[in-house]
């Protein structure tokens, strides 16, 4: 398949209902951190963009939301696909991005490189959409905060070794901070800045 047709295909079969279903999964995930939802069953973004990851782009990105792509994703096909289906501007400076997409296995760049919002407008912060090998099977973190009854355990696979320290740093300037959506294939789990993460037994 040529580069061009690949960028044109793979949008939602039904853009209106596909976006609604994906948003609902995303909203429920954001409202209940630590729970896993399925999204984007009828989207087919070009590899290495994940299915749920692509669906999130189709659902939320448009010409109002600059998008930053990680090095593995910053190829002509992915850029073309996001550009064609969402109309979003692809920016090279992560600080200007409203959404950032990272492929599986890539190092997660320093959170400080992304917009964390301002004291007056903490909502003007970036949302990171990070593809992982799997949403389970990794080290156990205990999550607490809004949306979680008492506490819940999450076992994301493929997060960096210093993730807890970096997440704590992201929360240190609360209510400023980033929000993360982790995806693996067609599954997603949200980690809003309001969620506290600790090592199991820590």
């Amino acid at each position: 398949m040529s580069l061009h047709t690949e960028a044109l295909e793979g949008g939602f079969a039904s853009p209106v209902l596909g976006a609604q279903a994906t948003f609902r999964a995303l909203m429920d995930a954001m409202a209940r951190p630590g729970t896993t939802r399925t999204a984007g069953s009828n989207a087919a973004p070009p590899h290495p963009l994940g299915v749920a990851q692509g669906a999130v782009a189709l659902t939320l990105a448009d010409h109002d939301t600059p998008v930053w792509l990680s090095p593995a994703l910053a190829n002509a096909t992915t850029k073309g696909w996001i550009g064609f289906h969402t109309g979003a501007e692809i920016v090279s400076s992560s600080a200007h991005a409203r959404f950032a997409f990272l492929a599986a296995g890539e190092p997660i760049p320093d959170f400080h490189g992304f917009a964390a919002g301002s004291q007056d407008y903490p909502d003007r912060s970036a949302t990171l959409v990070i593809e992982l090998p799997a949403l389970t099977g990794g080290p156990t973190f205990v999550a607490r905060g809004p949306g979680i009854k008492d506490s819940t355990q999450i076992t994301l696979q493929g997060t960096p070794a210093d993730f807890l320290r970096r997440w704590a740093a992201n929360r240190a300037f609360s209510p400023l901070g980033l929000d993360i959506v982790f995806t693996a294939g067609s599954e997603l789990m949200a980690l809003p800045r309001s969620t506290d993460l600790q090592a199991l037994g820590g």
């Binding site: 853009p15 209106v16 976006a19 609604q20 948003f23 995303l26 909203m27 954001m30 409202a31 659902t59 939320l60 990105a61 448009d62 109002d64 939301t65 409203r98 903490p122 909502d123 912060s125 949302t127 809004p146 949306g147 209510p175 929000d179 809003p192 800045r193 309001s194």
Partner: peptide
């Protein structure tokens, strides 16, 4: 329209993240 929904949806997600 879909562009309006996207804008509202983004606002809802940030609203949930900052209760």
């Amino acid at each position: 329209d879909e562009q309006t929904k996207r804008m509202i949806r983004r606002a809802i997600l940030k609203a949930i993240a900052i209760p």
